[in-house]
Nucleic acid binder design. Structure first.
Lengths: 191, 191
DNA sequence: GGTTCACATGAACAGACGTTCAGCTAAAGA
DNA sequence: TCTTTAGCTGAACGTCTGTTCATGTGAACC
């Protein structure tokens, strides 16, 4: 066989695409550059992804599903609600630091409609996690009584802001611990 | 003279550009379409803005300075810190609703570097406002003792998340009042 | 050797892009 | 009437884009 396995080539392309899309946005990213950075020809790239759009969607789906399942796994076996919230926030921020390109999901390129269903599913999923944690917190009397869906929406919105800040600030300048404490102060009964 | 005054044409162009950039991002926006929507020719557009980049920067600057001065004006003559925070948040969210294009400032198009100085100046300004409010709150004993710059950073990050959520959710679904309360619970001594 | 197969190439195409420029139009002043 | 002037036009240019396709290469099997 030739140089690389199909699998290796595909993953090379995905890596390069990730970099390109996160640095230049959808329209700004360039198929020739992506191919070049993946050490493959343009034609070769098109063997694995039938279009730019398909490549970008595949990327987004992969990343969001990975983060979603990671979150679910860790949050599931944490029974203390306060701890669960903390974990929820730090998993998301850690993942953001590791994969800065996750910002793709927030982007507005090609209008908000691009990949809208994938993004929507992800955000709904995230909100459901938070709702579950808060409901448990309220039930066990650790958290304040509140409108659970509304509060979950606020907490996920805050998280979204933290994620953006982590992406925009030079590394380390953003304090994850402080964020968790601040959020918890809004939830806990006895601080 | 011909059809319109230079002033009218320029403002028509800015309106069309705003729409284009916020809907399609920097690379996705199209000078021909912008000109068309502004009822002017491509050549005409270039009489007023020497390049796409200049047009976008001029737009961003205008919007951010408007919001910044609006914030300053209203926050300045509010002496109750809790009220000031509430106003700070709602001014920002109202402005976001009115000018959805503000999302330009959150974007990553053309790399993070595009318009970086304008954005940075704005965000620093915003953080300074928040710091001032918090410092006053701590001084008068209404707010909890805290690391002021760190806390201000967290609050502005949260605001950023709220702004994004307002932009992403269909109108009205996002509860401003609830956000303010949540943030204040993290700041106030006696809730 | 020949054939098959998976993997790969890059020139070429068609269209879109930002930008320029020689020239137009009609109102205002002489 | 002629000239000036502010405002405007849109074809044309060069470049870059996503995408296609006829072709190449070398390992594996017969």
């Amino acid at each position: 066989m030739n140089r690389r396995s199909a699998k290796d080539s595909k993953s090379s392309i995905l890596d390069a695409a990730l970099k390109a899309f996160s640095e230049h946005g959808y329209s700004g990213a360039n198929m020739r550059t992506i191919a070049g950075n993946a050490n493959i020809s343009v034609g070769g790239l098109y063997l694995y992804f039938k279009s730019k759009e398909a490549l970008c969607l595949s990327l987004m789906k992969e990343r969001l599903e990975e983060l979603s399942s990671k979150t679910e796994r860790i949050v599931k076996d944490t029974y203390n609600p306060a701890e669960a919230i903390e974990k929820f926030i730090s998993i998301n921020l850690d993942y953001t630091k590791e994969h800065r390109e996750i910002i793709l999901t927030q982007g507005r390129d090609k209008g908000f409609t691009f990949g809208a269903d994938v993004k929507k599913r992800f955000f709904r999923q995230q909100r459901k996690f938070v709702e579950k944690i808060i409901r448990e917190g309220v039930r066990t009397g650790v958290f304040l009584e509140c409108n659970v869906p509304e509060t979950a929406k606020i907490v996920t919105a805050m998280l979204r802001g933290f994620v953006l800040s982590v992406l925009l600030e030079p590394d380390g300048l953003f304090n994850v611990r402080g964020c968790c404490e601040f959020v918890l102060r809004g939830l806990l009964k006895n601080v």
